[in-house]
Design a protein around this nucleic acid. Structure first.
Lengths: 246, 246
DNA sequence: TAGTGGTCTAGACCACAAA
DNA sequence: TTGTGGTCTAGACCACTAA
């Protein structure tokens, strides 16, 4: 069981503590999509904070699309949607499950390389600094879906490449072994023609071949760039979704 | 000058009215990016609402990335960013200006067609119903950037095709002539190989040719689907940006 | 020190949904 | 009618920035 009460002597704001608590309940699946969460009155009572503070926290969760409210009925855990991929950091595994695929991973290679200028610039390090490089083939229902090339600043996570990243998430290793949580990221999305080597790896038919290409830089809690990631998705299997407003 | 006061007898909530007012100031450019907006105390005073209400409105604007706050300094108008394209409905003109290009448009064709099944389904109309179709070539600094194919439910905007949409925005015509505001949209983003006809229109080199393809359904104030849009962006000139969080 | 935004409270009344 | 979320107020004290 996780921490489930508010520490009045903590320096963290009450709303922040309550946010972590409620978010945890949802992300750990203790409250399932569609479930009603306790009414505001009960949260006020249980955590001994004002209704305003409770509502501030619920507003944050609504903004993240983790919950939704219905006047007169209650507040409910939201069902995950595909457009989250463009707003929240979502693991390949989660993403595929939401799309109705069974995810799989094969490690293509892992090695240490020295940082080329373009990657060094985005990771805010010196060119030539040591990077851990991990290439993986990602599968959906056993069929190739994407190729991922991860570059990690090795200084922050020496020895990462020891891990088995076919069956264990890289993010989890970073967190548990090095205390690094990737909390923020910036990405660029492009369409590319398919180079023949990638086409082969992804088992693509040349005629239908284009790649949805993503470059992502991920930042730690301390706002330090830690990972540079290239993802090549099969254009004939993968799409991104988003909702727009005025 | 636009309405700049709050109507206490209106059925609209105070925060909603204030939101429209402040948003207007920003979107009309009366407050420029980087400008400090009036402090909360002054807004409280000027519009005669509580600070809580003022802050509720500012929170909304912060969430839309229209303003940002700095404790101890003030609240400022945000500079537009490229990742807005994935969250807010942005006109081609605005988008290109933000990217540092001078936008241009050529109308390729405009005609009435009967709705094919796939489009009818997304527009929630009967197959065969009349659609206004508008094809345009979009230019950036005089060079082709994208091809857009717009399908409008003609019943909602009879005679739209009379307009000159090389120099006048389609959105404006819908609003002023038919009272239709497209306030919400859903889109899907894919990578496509370049068909030869589009490649020619976009002046693309075959070797570097992939398209970033977007399909968008836009909804009116009444949540009725009005427009189905296909955009084919040159993959070698156009990219999308997004920021992710945990 | 003065002015700004950040956090928090207690309480009121309204609107809507379900029994 | 009861219980839920929606809107709004007045006021307090804190934290940070700049002069």
């Amino acid at each position: 069981m996780h921490l489930d009460h508010i520490d009045r002597s903590s320096k963290l704001p009450l709303y922040h503590q309550l946010y972590e608590i409620l978010r945890d309940h949802i992300l750990r699946g203790e409250w399932q999509p569609g479930d009603m969460i306790p009414p505001e009155s009960e949260l006020t009572e249980r955590y001994q904070v004002s209704r305003t503070t409770v509502r501030q926290v619920l507003d944050m969760l609504v903004n993240e699309n983790l919950i939704y409210r219905q006047q007169g009925r209650g507040t409910f855990v939201a069902h995950p949607t595909l457009d989250q991929t463009l707003v929240r950091i979502v693991s390949f595994t989660e993403d595929m499950r939401q799309r109705g695929f069974e995810p799989g991973t094969k490690v293509i290679s892992s090695d240490l390389v020295s940082a080329p200028a373009d990657i060094a610039q985005r990771l805010e390090i010196q060119p030539g600094e040591e990077l851990a490089r991990l290439k993986r083939l990602r599968l959906a229902d056993g069929e190739p879906m994407s190729v991922e090339e991860s570059y990690l600043v090795h200084r922050y996570c020496p020895g990462v490449l020891q891990g088995d990243y076919a069956s264990h998430p890289l993010r989890r290793a970073l967190e548990s072994d090095y205390g690094i949580r990737l909390v923020r990221a910036k990405q660029v999305i492009r369409a590319l023609p398919t180079p023949s080597d990638l086409g082969r790896m992804l088992s693509m038919r040349p005629a239908k071949s284009a790649l949805l290409y993503i470059e992502r830089v991920s930042y730690s809690q301390q706002d330090v760039p830690v990972e540079f990631l290239r993802i090549y998705y099969r254009g004939d299997r993968y799409a991104l979704y988003s909702e727009l407003h005025e």
